[in-house]
């Protein structure tokens, strides 16, 4: 009887140790963000349905601040925002205006080459939270972008080398 009691304790200890290890182990749940294909593929996909869209540009600065500008309201200066909650609120307000005008809002996320990956993921999360179509513009080369490419990947992310932002910079 005493031996049986010892065994039960032994099993108890074994299970406690096992569950202890399970509890302290770092089980990391990861997911993935699909990145769109090459610029040409994205451009083909984006050629349709251009008219009923309004674009919001979210620039991510070198210090990972967000600068939001509405391309439908060019006279309004860009708004600088330091956190994700502020970005979400700004996007929500702008998309509400677009909704009233029966326009679909598309967010163009434009990270600075030196901005950190987390800032871009935060911006994408803000878009997903508001169920806004988004496109990651990766044409962040310092050298001049080739003329003519202005592909926009919607509902996905595009690795592209466009000149739309260069034109915008020129205009401003």
């Amino acid at each position: 009887m005493a031996r049986r009691g010892f065994l039960i304790r032994f099993i108890d200890i074994g299970l406690i140790v096992l569950f202890g290890f399970l509890m302290i182990s770092d089980i990391e749940a990861s997911s993935r963000v699909e990145l769109a294909g090459a610029p040409a593929e994205v451009e083909e996909a984006a050629e349709e349905e251009e008219d009923d869209r309004a674009y919001i540009v979210v620039e991510i600065t070198e210090s990972s601040y967000f600068r939001v500008s509405d391309l439908a309201a060019v006279d309004r200066p860009p708004v600088s925002i330091g956190d994700v909650d502020g970005l979400t609120q700004a996007l929500e307000a702008l998309s509400r205006v677009h909704d009233e005008q029966e326009l679909e809002t598309v967010v163009l996320i434009q990270p600075h080459p030196e901005s950190v990956v987390q800032a871009t993921v935060d911006a994408m999360d803000a878009c997903d939270r508001l169920e806004l179509a988004k496109s990651l513009r990766m044409d962040i080369e310092i050298e001049p972008a080739p003329v003519g490419d202005s592909a926009i990947g919607v509902d996905g992310l595009s690795a592209e080398s466009g000149s739309a932002d260069a034109e915008r910079r020129d205009a401003s």
Binding site: R32, V33, L35, A38, P111, E114, S115, V116, M138, A159
Partner: peptide, 22 residues
């Protein structure tokens, strides 16, 4: 920095491979 992610994405594009950010 995003520039390194962009470089990796471009390498995938050059090889015609689909890619995802984890």
């Amino acid at each position: 920095p995003m520039r390194y992610l962009v470089d990796a994405a471009r390498v995938c594009d050059q090889l015609g491979l689909p890619k995802a950010l984890e």
